[in-house]
Measured scan of single mutants.
Amino acid sequence: KAVLCADHGEKLQLFCQEDGKVICWLCERSQEHRGHHTFLVE
């Protein structure tokens, strides 16, 4: 069962290295995470 983003309802499948947390693809494109290094997690 996928864990969903509290903000967007999308699957949490990216790890943001700068923030040390898992985010969704919409979070990654938001101003908050712009320019951060993210990695796909399974």
Rank of each mutant, 00 (worst) to 15 (best):
E18G: 03
C27L: 01
H36D: 03
C16V: 03
R29L: 07
C5S: 01
L14C: 07
A2K: 14
H33G: 01
Q31D: 06
E42Y: 03
F39E: 14
H37F: 14
S30C: 09
L4F: 14
Q31V: 12
G35M: 03
H33M: 02
L40S: 14
V41C: 07
E28P: 04
D7N: 09
K11F: 09
C16G: 05
Q17H: 06
A2Y: 08
H8A: 01
L4C: 07
V22N: 13
G9Q: 11
D7L: 14
G20K: 05
K1N: 05
L14H: 14
H36P: 01
L40T: 12
D7G: 05
R34K: 09
H37R: 12
Q13A: 12
H33W: 01
R34G: 07
V3T: 12
H36R: 02
W25P: 11
A6I: 04
G35T: 09
L4R: 09
F39N: 12
H37I: 11
S30N: 08
V41N: 12
R34W: 05
Q31C: 09
Q31I: 10
C5E: 02
K11L: 06
V22R: 13
C27A: 01
L12A: 15
D7C: 13
H8L: 00
K21H: 08
A2M: 15
L14N: 08
Q17C: 11
C24M: 00
L14T: 09
E28N: 05
R34M: 10
L12M: 15
L12T: 09
G35W: 04
E18H: 05
G9S: 10
L4K: 08
V3C: 13
A6D: 09
V3R: 05
Q13T: 14
R29Q: 07
R34T: 13
G35K: 06
I23P: 02
G35R: 07
E18M: 14
D19G: 01
Q13L: 08
L26C: 08
R34D: 11
G20D: 15
I23R: 04
A6Y: 07
H8R: 01
G20L: 14
Q17L: 04
Q17V: 04
Q13K: 14
C16D: 06
G35P: 04
E10L: 06
A2S: 12
V3A: 12
K1F: 04
E28K: 10
C24E: 01
L4G: 07
